[in-house]
Design a protein around this nucleic acid. Sequence first.
DNA 1: CGTTTTTGACCCGCGC
DNA 2: GCGCGGGTCAAAAACG
Length: 433
Amino acid sequence: MDNKCGLTVENSDRVGFFRLDLSPRLNHQTKDIMFPVNPSPVDEKPIALGAVDFFSDKKKPIADHTGLQLVTAVEDRISSDHVEDKLAKNELSQLQVEIQRMNSDNQKLRGMLTQVNNNYNSLHLQFVEFMQQQENSKSDRSEKELSRTKRIGREESPESHGLASKKVPKLNPYQTPEATMRKARVSIRAISEAPMISDGCQWRKYGQKMAKGNPCPRAYYRCTMAVGCPVRKQVQRCAEDKTILITSYEGTHSHPLPQAAMAMASTTSAAANMLLCGSTTGADGLLNTTFPARTILPYSSNIATISASAPIPTVTLDLTQPPNSLQQFQRTSPAQFQVPSPLPTPPIAQVFGSKFSGLQMSQDIETALPSQAEHHKSFTDTLSAATAAITADPNFTVALAAAITSIIGGTHPNISDNTTNDNSNVNASSSIQ
DNA sequence: CGTTTTTGACCCGCGC
DNA sequence: GCGCGGGTCAAAAACG
């Protein structure tokens, strides 16, 4: 810009002056302006000394050489701009301070996260090593014991090795992390007329039994998408309401999953993973609490049921809850979900609108998940919503993890405090798919 | 003919 | 030790 003007400010005792070099606009004319020294704060009313056009949009506050802050108001416009500029600068400096503070916090949090990760990795490594040692010692013992048994035929078949290996966890359920994973079961309650819910995976039925207390048989399926995939699934109709289909998943897929199976896999994985994280973290977990799940789960009271009767820790995703619990969820949670495709009939759409309603855990864990659509496509969407809720809603995740911790923590009270860092991993989704 | 389902038998843990 | 119940196996049958 060619309208810059030089400015020199000096002062002596009570009087100061500044010399303006008005070049180049005014042929390098100079103009000396006298002014009294005003040690008062800059926001006091400036003293107008004359009309001088600065030609410039750069109107900086003037500071004298002695450190006194002076405001030289040549005209009202300049002075007002000057004050605004000062205010803007103050605001800017405040923002900079704020940014610095946030950066500092961010650095601290990063450090904590790194430490948590390191602790987790270290403990996980120790855990794996420990379990492998136990497995080795146990399997040696088991082999000798099995060699004395009368079950000769099965032991000699190729499958018998698989059978034996599969039955190892029964001897010691905590032998390996994988075995531990297998201890968790994700059960999904959904209203469906179909004999089996389409979840994107391929299943082969390998058994059917009449379960006690239920006139409907329980069917057993195993995943056939890959040879040796350990994932099992149980399908049974609810004894109380035969329109409700209860599907339980157990195990971890040993192969990539198609897109259609990812929703279910992610849902069960996230839910089971939180359960399992809770099981390995002890009572001093994320929220350092053992108070009842009901008190820390804000979602719904009527969907919160606690049952310690299950032999295997089971997460039940109840997709059948009525709208009242749905409303409760909507009121209390920021994460809300809607199935994109509307359902055919208003009542169904109302009741099974695929928003979150409730989640039950067989060990008295209560929280919220979406209710379900009756149709399979909608069901998949619902599961996507459930997945999103589990993984995205901090309240949900924290509540569920805390509930798990509070319940299962009591069963593993001797885990050291360091393991509490595991709870930072509650969002992981790799265990059960 | 290969795959899946059916179904009776078997194994195993648990409680009495 | 025995019975019960859950889970699995595997031969036979059914299916595509």
